[in-house]
Nucleic acid binder design. Sequence first.
DNA 1: TCTCACATTGAGACCGGTCTCAAATTAAAA
DNA 2: TTTTAATTTGAGACCGGTCTCAATGTGAGA
Lengths: 356, 356
Amino acid sequence: MDQNPPRSPSVTVADVACKAGVSKATAARVLGGYGTVSDHVRDAVTAAARALDYQPNELARSMTTGRSGTIGVVVGDIENPFFSLAMRGITDVARQTGFTVILINSGEDAATEKSAIRTLLAKRVDGLIVSPAKESDADHLREAARSGRPLVLLDRGSETLDIDTVIADDRHAAEGITRRLIALGHRRIAYITACDTPEHRFRTPADINTGSVRRRIEGFLDVCLEAGLEDMEDWVHVGAVTPEHTHRIATVMLKSSRRPTAVIASDSVIGLEVFKVCRELGLTIPNDLSLVSFHDADWTSVTTPPVTVVRQPVYGLGEAAAKLLVERLNGNTAKATRVVLKTEVVERASVAAAPT
Amino acid sequence: MDQNPPRSPSVTVADVACKAGVSKATAARVLGGYGTVSDHVRDAVTAAARALDYQPNELARSMTTGRSGTIGVVVGDIENPFFSLAMRGITDVARQTGFTVILINSGEDAATEKSAIRTLLAKRVDGLIVSPAKESDADHLREAARSGRPLVLLDRGSETLDIDTVIADDRHAAEGITRRLIALGHRRIAYITACDTPEHRFRTPADINTGSVRRRIEGFLDVCLEAGLEDMEDWVHVGAVTPEHTHRIATVMLKSSRRPTAVIASDSVIGLEVFKVCRELGLTIPNDLSLVSFHDADWTSVTTPPVTVVRQPVYGLGEAAAKLLVERLNGNTAKATRVVLKTEVVERASVAAAPT
DNA sequence: TCTCACATTGAGACCGGTCTCAAATTAAAA
DNA sequence: TTTTAATTTGAGACCGGTCTCAATGTGAGA
């Protein structure tokens, strides 16, 4: 009696209209929730739709309306807790505002990022949130922005680009912790980042393609200079792209006769690895080495000693980016803004006076 | 001279065809890469497309082909390292095979999950990967499976459902660590999970709606029973849904006069919280309490002592699910399979003999 | 030179919705 | 009761691709 309805050829508005005995246009009005229809007809169409188990085709709808109800997100690595938390912020806002999220991992590779954006644009996303791997060649970003679909840059993005951006006040945070370390007597302070340069060596902040990191290093170097410390560029280590790389870099650095008395890790993955190397090398924190890490990862409070971190509003970063994007989607055409969220230093026990 | 081309009305095959002086059909053949065209015409169309900066509309293409090149993924919480790592596995496979991923967070809520699946189906995803929050009412899963679009269940999924599933051998892992704890003299062994029951109390594994966790608890209880330990159901704690909840549960449990001598944490977030509570309460691991956690989170090797964990092939779980789905998409119509990946116990220093 | 198979092209239907416009119906105003 | 305005409805174009089918052109074989 109640045999399974044939699923393959999905039911369309036309089918519903036919069953309800009205025109396609009228059925579409009821199903699409637009225009005006009499109560009598509405009931009939609704009943027919239910009977046929009508499922709207969002694709067809997007086709005519031009809006897909989708936002595209390109991040470096969703596996990184930083991005997964930011992603949570984005998806939460998206869900609340009725959008759906397409996620693409760039693997921090500029070429992949480029094709990702092209793919998303082809899929007609309504807007984009991108955490650009490299800022040097940003043509694809400009192009995306020019395509008419709003674009928001997340955590990164250079000052020269006239594009909406949401970042944390990394520079200020770096200045703060650097000052603190110097006040405690540290003179040999290392900074380790995943960002790499062509020669795998650091010369000047301009080498750094990632805005957030560049700003931190600028802050670090400026405060050092203020305090009379020179050539601190030599203490900046780049290329800690994987835990293995970090391990190698940290080991060489900490085994050196002129090893640093303090280390600033540019993210929690690096911080964790430095912590491990210290243990391997028998260095005690904070007596032999002070450690500060960016990103308040969950584990940082539970080590011995717990590590002092820069707490970034990561969820808020994603949330703000998504909100800004949705505003644009709703027609806000004010000129590009730059949202800067506050960071906070969480003092724990991995920082102490420099050994004498 | 080279003024910006008007972007708003995007260029279509018709525009390109017109410029190239051929019919729409022919231009579409070149642009879409199907049918046969003469070299002469191909060059003309390609040139016209380049001149006009033609960008194909993937939406329109999906409309007629019926394939969107998209797979939908529904997970409990992308912020959880477990899911973010699995997600990495999924996106990697998707990219390699030319698919794009739409991500929706269910927040482990059955209703949200239901509407998420509906949304994805409406957007005409080619296939679905879902990590179902509850297995009790799986009507929406059956419906999705019946819609003709392939569905793969990730990490969870009951035996009764005739749907492709990728899981880890949780039961085996739980049996192993329980045996080990019992062999070390532990008799009071607690199991803490985020899964909740209506009465917030545990009676029988059938109460547990999440397959992976249910299988673990079954393994745990079976081994206990084998060893002659009875009423171990009382030692299973449910409802550790947030760190705050976990903190409360662990505190009450560990302050009790008949406190456990060993704890099994069902995921790394819970494990971390138990670790914190021990520290607050002045309990030393492993002398006062042995701790084992599921999920080899990065921090577990760096605490004092490092914690013994069950290493699940999380990335592999996502990878396998995506590969299975892609196979289905390519026409594999064999009957539903169940992929079970091996786990591995990583012995560290948080487990010792039970205090006498 | 004529026939036939095959390669190339164009016209137009189609996917499943939205939306414009005019016709038909109904209610309100004169 | 007639005029005018407002409300409902249907017919059909449209979005931007794909794809079928028939028409045309070309070279090989008879």
